[in-house]
Write a protein that binds this DNA or RNA. Structure first.
Lengths: 343, 343
DNA sequence: TATTTTTGCACAAACGATGTCGCAATTGAA
DNA sequence: TTCAATTGCGACATCGTTTGTGCAAAAATA
């Protein structure tokens, strides 16, 4: 069971009869700075290749006190929105020389606290977090250790971290206005969870748009981002005498439930009732009636977060403290055929 | 700009007037082994707490030559199947003391090779990889470095790594038999990419089931796991004189395309045509007609992979080489209302 | 030829934590 | 009182890198 010994610069040094120093300098690219001759460089490089050398990152990290890694904290990757962000973050950061330590928190706040502590102990150089909950105290662990943080989709009043999010408010506002311009007056909003800031902003956008257009028929129902919620609320809505002319579901999950309820009652979209939603899942195009939806700017959010984090890290390294940034990215609306034009 | 100095065991040693050795022993739990008195322990622990000490992982790694981290290589998290696996892997491994380094390869083989190299350099203790491509040479980098590997969903003939996958063959076979038992004879299979092993196994399952039941009308069309592919092939199929009675799409993406084509031609499921698929996305329940589907055993696959990897790591540490395992997990079928019973 | 300058490389000290040895002081036995 | 055993802790080397400093030999200048 020949335990194959690790190849280190020492190995190479012995093989090439050159000092550790020289080998190190060639291998980490500072050869010209220290005037290592081309011949010597060639010798080292060849030996390294032949021995299949890779530097020991732990040693490098220790010496340089840099980890070359960044933490990514997400509520759960089962949510496509978070998964898409994770996807972009992961391979974008890799091209910039960082590896990504993933922490899936299973939508559990306590788990998130643990995750953050672990990341702090690992000396990650920065953290992108999509918070699962309300509390912010764990983020302070990172702040105290001077680790740059960028939040996605949730804003903390009390701590100075940058954040970037969809502009839920304007998204919902403009979608509601679109319905109003199409002649709808009885527009119902089926919301998700009250404890989610994004939800409340969307609701506010809807309400403000209704108010701005002097619509009296303002109605918000529901309480969770689930298909069941959408199904139940829709069933209740359509069996009333005064049926809404349009339903605005605040997520695609809710929308699916609504769809099922409508199908059961043989109500056709958009003839019998109009339906719009938030999220723009890829399957919307392929439903019996393609559904008009607000699309979260996933790419922008991910890329801006990365840039923000990297800038903060760089500034930090130079002793500069960057101002907190609060970025709201406007979502786009994807118009399909689920809204009936009433006027 | 008071650069707050890192708190190390040295700091604690100075504060407590105890030696580095003693502090270290208390802090890493080997106090009783070295007979450190309770008083001393208390002193150290309190100092550590007050100073908010966390061990430097790089130093620990270097010293112990362990990284406490495991690599996870996925084609892309935009695919919910991979995202779900990543989700489970991430928080399950965390509870076992490992952190997960995520490598999203954007479905690009070259990127995957780079990702694997990076993981090797980081001395991860093991790697779970869902390969993007056919080639296996990069996996050898890990093998050579004695890093345990478990593959998901793809089997390499030429290298001794364990793998676990859905039993695509039996899944497709039994679904096809179900259609046959329901009286269907003209069953078309719309496949995904030929270069994906999973696809070919599913196709084989379909063909074998048809052959086993002496059905002459065997027909496989299509060439990619996309909605467009499903749409185009379905349009072609339904305008022929001899229209199939059932369509078996090999992924939900393909299914969505088929659905669109059927809706455009006002063909109702299951009255005019039956439709079954592979993947079981959560929205299948909420389509106009809920679609019968094969569900990949995501949880089992993820958990078994983890167990396999951890076992291999443990065995490796003891100098034992575990046998390669090849596990095929049978998928389940979720029966909904998209199949018409013809007899 | 003598002196300065440049070229090419090596020594040694870190980074933070762990583990092997060893030594003093305390306790117990004789 | 004496010697052995036990208790409680510290000095030091080490893991694999990087880097400031130093010092020969070669080249350039005088």
């Amino acid at each position: 069971m020949s335990q194959l010994k690790h190849v280190t610069i020492k190995t190479i040094s012995e093989v090439t009869k050159l000092s550790l120093t020289t080998v190190s300098r060639v291998l980490n690219g500072s050869a010209k700075k220290y005037r290592i001759s081309d011949d010597t460089q060639k010798v080292v490089l060849e030996a390294a290749k032949k021995l299949n050398y890779t530097p020991n990152q732990a040693a490098v990290s220790l010496r340089l006190s840099r980890s070359f890694s960044i933490g990514l904290v997400v509520p759960t990757l089962s949510n496509p929105f978070f998964a898409d962000i994770a996807s972009i973050v992961s391979h974008s950061l890799r091209t910039k020389g960082y590896s990504v330590v993933l922490m899936d928190c299973d939508e559990n706040e306590a788990t998130e606290v643990e995750a953050v502590k672990l990341l702090a102990a690992q000396n990650v150089e920065g953290v992108i977090v999509i918070p699962s909950g309300i509390d912010s105290s764990h983020i302070n662990i990172l702040i105290k250790r001077n680790i740059p943080v960028v939040c996605i989709d949730r804003y903390y009043e009390d701590i100075p971290v940058s954040y970037v999010a969809t502009n839920h408010y304007t998204g919902a506002f403009s979608m509601t206005e679109y319905l109003i311009r199409a002649g709808h007056t009885k527009i119902v909003c089926i919301q998700g969870s009250h404890s989610v800031v994004a939800n409340n902003l969307r609701v506010k956008g809807y309400k403000d748009a209704m108010a701005a257009n002097k619509k009296a028929w303002v109605k918000v129902v529901g309480n969770s981002f689930t298909q069941d919620n959408g199904y139940i609320e829709t069933r209740l809505l359509i069996q009333k005498k005064e049926r809404p002319t349009a339903i605005f579901t605040l997520s695609d999950t809710i929308m699916l439930g609504a769809l099922k309820a409508l199908a059961e009652e043989k109500l056709a979209i958009p003839y019998d009732i109009s339906l719009v939603t938030f999220d723009n899942s890829s399957y919307l195009d392929f439903l019996a009636c393609p559904i008009t939806s607000i699309a979260q700017p996933v790419n922008d959010i991910a890329n801006i977060s990365i840039k923000l984090l990297l800038d903060t890290i760089k500034a930090n390294a130079n002793g500069v403290k960057l101002d907190q940034m609060k970025l709201l990215i406007s979502p786009s609306t994807v118009y399909r055929q689920s809204v009936r034009i009433l006027k």
